[in-house]
Amino acid sequence: MGAFTLYIVATVTFMLMHSVPGDPLRQEKAVSDVVRNNLQVRYGLDKPIFEQYTMYMKNMFIHGDFGISFKQQNRTVNAIIAEHFGPSAILGVLALFGALIVGVGLGIIAALKRNGLQDGFAMMIAVLGVSIPSFVLAYFLQHIFALWLGILPVGGWGGIESAILPAMSLGMIVMASMARLMRSSMLEVVQQDYIKTAKAKGLSRFKIVTKHQIRNALLPVMIYFGPLFAAITTGSFVIESIFGIPGLGQFFVHAVNELDYTVIMGLTVFYAGFSITMILINDLVLAVIDPRIRFSSH
């Protein structure tokens, strides 16, 4: 099923990409016809479109070869993904787990203190987090922590300290949505019968909250986790450009602008494959946590 999805994604991307106007081989300075033809031969663009398609699919699915980048002329797409996925992944993991811990924490506090001062405070942070664009936040953090306080680097990549500001900028929106999701999920769970049962059993409030309410309220949050993980660890164009992080995010945008066919295809297929894998893992983990999913198939 996953492989089939991947195949469809690759095919659709291939078709869309070739229907975008513009000539991927055209540079600022026009070249002679002979040179142009040679470039076409080099990238296989001289062949009929269907042949290009079958050749590309064969190379990709059988040999795992994504081809050579049109723009960075000496580099294979495989090398680009291999070299640049690392920084994006590290940043993504930091951002995601930071966001998860803080977001869930805020959501829990807000729900327990519903309509109280803490609730208002937590939800204010959540609203700010959702509504401030990440690049505004990034510049803001850069000014506060790097230029004003001088405790973290302005940008660059290397060492854990250089990952803090970009991870915060990247994770803020996730944190905010998690907080809101967790809060509403907590409030929903509170009305469930099993909470009433627990109360009737005479369990302490602490036990009800930790063992029944939080655990069950976490499930909706966990459902988003897999796809979110895939999205956030494959890089963000904005954050990576602002902080100068050699990640994958930049390639998604530049490749489309430059009509770098091989990079567009390679990244899309890689991203799709990675997402599918993450969703699968997520489902398996959920099945372990949530007995309802595990038993529903029986």
Partner: peptide, 19 residues
């Protein structure tokens, strides 16, 4: 050239920070 910073504002901030 330890970092590649494409964003013009960040690049300028790096200059301000004497990086």
């Amino acid at each position: 050239m330890p970092y590649l910073i494409r964003d013009v504002n960040s690049e300028f901030n790096m200059f301000k920070d004497d990086k």
